[in-house]
Design a protein around this nucleic acid. Structure first.
Length: 155
DNA sequence: GCCAACGTTGGC
DNA sequence: GCCAACGTTGGC
């Protein structure tokens, strides 16, 4: 990992799509993002960026694994799929509104870094965006914070 | 452009 | 199930 490595965090509910699902499949298209801020962050992703996999809406919520960006700027197919929960009637084929990145499984950490522990460790830090009330499902993680997260998970 | 009503996320 | 903290929609 180099100094230029960039880090992100992506949330998913484990009963919808978990780190174990990703481990089994190897790669996944991160589709279904319907929040502009999250989409815009995803657009900034570059191949090789590292991404923390965060399990949300479960007990306990927290960081469970690591992924890597392997493709970017892919059209999200679910926006045109009438059977999908993510179908968007306002999105046109000529100008798709939603796109996504493709992620590769890197590892599942031996332990979970719970939201509690994250909040304890990074109390008052503006560098981490996970906090009560932040419902953004994709967010950048500052390099210093990412290093501390990895260190605490690999010890 | 304002804002009320409504919908969603996600921790608790 | 509750509800805080948003985001979206649509009338005006």
């Amino acid at each position: 990992m180099t100094e230029e490595t960039r880090f992100w965090l992506m949330k998913s509910e484990p009963n919808v799509y978990s780190i174990d699902d990703l481990k089994n499949e190897g790669t996944t298209l991160w589709d279904g993002i319907r929040n502009y801020q999250a989409r815009n962050f995803m657009r900034k992703m570059k191949i090789g960026d590292q991404v923390f996999f965060y399990h949300s809406n479960c007990k306990p919520p927290g960081i469970t694994g690591l992924m890597e960006v392997i493709e970017t700027n892919l059209i999200d197919p679910t926006q045109f799929d009438k059977k999908s929960n993510y179908f968007d009637s306002k999105s046109k084929k000529e100008s798709p509104r939603w796109d996504c990145a493709k992620l590769k499984y890197i590892k599942k950490f031996n332990k979970l870094l719970s939201l509690n522990e994250i909040n304890e460790s990074f109390k008052g830090s503006e560098l981490i965006l996970i906090r009560k009330g932040n419902r953004l499902s994709i967010m950048p993680i500052h390099l210093n914070i990412a290093m501390q997260i990895i260190q605490s998970l690999e010890n």
